[in-house]
């Protein structure tokens, strides 16, 4: 089954009086357990595409299906629900909550998803364990290294076991060795939990773990 499918997605931004066509009909399918790397030069529309499939932006035209459900861009109230239920995000900037410990960052994501109490605590522990951070779980983000932060972010994205994981340049702020560790963890999480993973990146290392590599140029996927 496809955990993500897009059909002819376009995005037009209004820049003053000018229209900027950022995406010009992107069609893509991602199966459960599959890892796809989306590569492209700066400004090619990678983040824009990720935002659309992540139900953060709405497309100008085209259709998006997440976990078998069509995203209705006319119903904005549906978007947070899909994000909550089906999608885990990993950002280039980590975006951890600075006042919360590693464990609490994960627990907070679970709380947003409606999970609290001992079961949530256990799930958060497990997520941190799966990224190898058990011994740092009570650290605040400022006391963690970049690689550790990104692992917390990954654990947070795994919380609630979403079928689809979206990552925007997850290795951009990390050195080669840490980057390799992180993408290995992405691969594990995809294969272990049968999760679809879409990684937007410049980083050639990501190719090594991807099942497929797609190139995006000027808002189009190259065949």
């Amino acid at each position: 089954m496809n955990v993500l499918e897009t059909q002819n997605v376009t995005k037009v931004f209004q820049e003053g009086r000018e229209q900027v066509n950022v995406l010009n009909g992107v069609s893509l399918a991602l199966e459960a357990g599959e890892i796809v790397a989306l590569e492209g030069p700066s400004g090619s529309g990678k983040t824009t595409f990720l935002s659309i499939v992540g139900c953060i932006l709405t497309p100008s035209s085209g259709r998006v299906f997440v976990d078998g459900e069509e995203v209705d861009s006319l119903n904005p109230a549906q978007l947070p629900e899909i994000r909550k239920k089906s999608i885990g995000f990993v950002f280039q900037q980590y975006n951890l909550f600075p006042s919360l410990t590693a464990l609490e960052n994960v627990q907070y994501a679970l709380k947003i998803k409606g999970k609290t109490g001992p079961a949530a605590r256990k799930e958060a522990d497990k997520a941190l364990e799966s990224v190898g951070l058990t011994d740092r779980k009570n650290f605040l983000p400022r006391d963690l290294s970049g690689g550790q932060k990104q692992r917390v972010a990954l654990a947070r994205a795994l919380a609630g076991a979403p079928p689809l994981m979206l990552a925007d340049e997850p290795t951009a702020n990390l050195d080669t060795q840490l980057g390799t560790q992180i993408i290995e963890l992405f691969r594990e999480s995809a294969k272990r939990d049968n999760r679809g993973v879409l990684i937007v990146t410049h980083d050639p290392k990501v190719r090594t773990i991807a099942d497929r590599v797609l190139q995006i140029r000027d808002g189009r996927i190259l065949q």
Binding site: G54, P80, R83, K84, N95, F97, A109, I112, K113
Partner: peptide
């Protein structure tokens, strides 16, 4: 940005 993150992970 934190509030943006809350929204991104599904918070209202």
């Amino acid at each position: 940005k934190e509030f943006g993150t809350v929204k991104a992970i599904g918070g209202s």
